[in-house]
């Protein structure tokens, strides 16, 4: 009998002998993967939403006087010294006045008696579109307020801060559910293997007396942990995909809801989650084998 064939046969026997416990373990592994992946998916989607939001995010620094072209490189360098940005645009009074006129459209005639001097010159700064830079907007804004001639810095401050707090909360939830995943899968698989070892105590004793090698006895139990990992995590991921498909059809849409246009994990990320879960299940069974087996 080839070794692999034997080990698979023996694993099958083990599964048959304790199928109730095996199902409970599978359920726990699936649920843990589902919970963790669920929060991770929310986090990933929030980041994506943040990206979309930051496309239109700009910090506008209103100035009391226009920046002459010779000064612009110095101002630009000063801004870049604090943080890398995507774009810096210097807006003169005249340009601001023209924009305002366009925005008014048909009612632009109200500006006929007025001149560009009513509009303050400004600098429009587009920050980089990642969460790290978004979360530092407050500090960045405070810094921009110290630029020479700066009167006021404007951006969607409250909204961005709330968004930042919410993202942080989800990030903490992802970390906690990750810890839950590690603990639950590791513990459950380890516990199941322990039960198997206890249930097979007499058999293991006889195998020991027959001169069974350590790999002969341990490999089926390792395969058992491996299988729990493969089936449990794949099932958890499949459940999440079903949940995603269901939710995506209802939450995605035009307008404001477009901000929450849901996306699923990339195949690489999904595979990584499954592989990590498999590794943890196999690790859990290895720890149990080392701890409880005498062979």
């Amino acid at each position: 009998m080839s070794r692999l064939k034997y080990h698979i046969k023996q694993t099958w026997r083990n599964l048959g002998q304790s199928w109730g416990t095996q199902i409970m373990t599978l359920f726990t592994v699936s649920l843990s993967v589902l919970i963790f992946s669920f929060f991770l998916l929310i986090y990933v989607n929030i980041l994506a939403a943040g990206d979309r939001f930051s496309d239109e995010l700009r910090l506008v620094v209103y100035l009391d006087h226009e920046v002459v072209p010779e000064m612009q490189p110095q101002i630009r360098k000063k801004i870049m010294d604090f943080s890398e940005v995507e774009n810096i645009v210097f807006v003169s009074r005249k340009e601001a006045f023209e924009r305002f006129r366009k925005q008014l459209g048909k009612n632009s005639d109200v500006l006929d008696d007025l001149g560009p001097e009513i509009m303050p010159p400004s600098i429009e700064v587009s920050p980089l579109r990642d969460l790290e830079h978004l979360s530092q907007l407050k500090e960045f804004s405070d810094y921009l307020a110290t630029l020479p001639g700066a009167l006021k810095v404007q951006y969607g401050q409250n909204w961005v801060e709330r968004f930042g707090h919410f993202t942080e909360l989800v990030r903490m939830t992802v970390i906690m559910s990750g810890v839950l995943l590690v603990m639950a899968t590791g513990f459950m698989v380890s516990y199941t293997i322990r039960l198997t070892v206890v249930a097979k105590d007499a058999e293991l004793e006889i195998l020991r007396l027959l001169g069974a090698s350590s790999s002969y006895v341990q490999t089926p139990l390792l395969i058992e942990g491996l299988m729990q990992g493969i089936i449990g995590s794949t099932l958890g991921m499949a459940l999440l995909y079903a949940l995603y498909t269901w939710a995506a059809g209802r939450l995605s849409g035009p307008g404001f809801l477009r901000l929450f246009d849901l996306t699923f994990f990339s195949p690489l990320t999904a595979c990584a989650i499954i592989l990590v879960s498999i590794a943890m299940c196999t690790g859990g069974s290895l720890i149990a084998i080392r701890k409880y087996m005498r062979i």
């Binding site: 009998m1 064939k5 034997y6 007499a202 058999e203 006889i206 001169g211």
Partner: peptide
């Protein structure tokens, strides 16, 4: 005796050969 009561007679007797990974037909 040290036999496994829930295993069949065949399974009990086959154990020493399985430990040595003997081919199924030979066992």
């Amino acid at each position: 005796f040290k036999i496994l009561p829930r295993h069949t007679v065949f399974q009990n007797v086959a154990m020493p050969m399985e430990v040595l990974y003997r081919p199924g037909r030979e066992i």
